[in-house]
């Protein structure tokens, strides 16, 4: 084995180092603002988390989460205002109920429960946002790469 080969292997290993893909849905009024506060307070969390802004957590159709898993996401986190604090008064209650159902469905189709999470983060909780994201990413690292959810018929 030449020196170049060793270097190549090292480069390949580095290139192959697994980076989880994590989608975070954040409601515009609380969690997105909480993420902004985490930013302006320079409270870091892994770059694997990519945030999608939605008006309210109740805008998140469970289909979006399934779509993310279908496209190879390793974790999906949905953040909204604390119960009782929803900008639209009741949106996060809908979210809570819908997600309970989705969790059960994800169990059924074999996506680990811990890969999806619902968290309440207020606009003032920058520190909490960062902590939640750090925790979540650590958990996803523990679980490892996700199996892509998909229609086997499409692969034939």
């Amino acid at each position: 084995m030449s020196v170049n080969d060793t270097v190549d292997t090292a480069v390949n290993a580095a290139a192959k180092e697994w980076k989880p893909k994590i989608v975070a849905f954040c409601c515009n009024w609380c969690s997105y603002a909480g993420a902004d506060l985490a930013g302006s307070s320079r409270l870091s969390y892994p770059a694997d988390v990519k945030i999608i802004r939605v008006p309210c957590s109740c805008r998140v159709n469970p289909m979006f989460i399934l779509k993310a898993f279908e496209r190879g996401a390793d974790g999906v986190i949905l953040c909204g205002c604390h119960p009782g604090d929803c900008h639209y008064s009741t949106g996060n209650y809908y979210t809570r109920r819908r997600m309970t159902l989705l969790f059960s469905m994800l169990d059924y189709i074999g996506v680990e429960r811990e890969r999806t999470r619902v968290e309440w983060v207020s606009a003032a909780e920058g520190a909490r946002f960062s902590k939640v994201m750090n925790d979540f990413v650590a958990k996803i690292h523990e679980l490892g790469e996700n199996v892509k959810v998909g229609d086997l018929r499409c692969k034939q």
């Binding site: 989608v23 289909m63 993310a68 996401a73």
Partner: peptide
């Protein structure tokens, strides 16, 4: 559907992130 945050738009974002 919701204007400005349509199903298609959010799906497109999800896809772009998971690419």
């Amino acid at each position: 559907d919701l204007k400005g945050f349509s199903n298609k738009q959010i799906m497109a974002e999800v896809e772009a992130i998971c690419l």
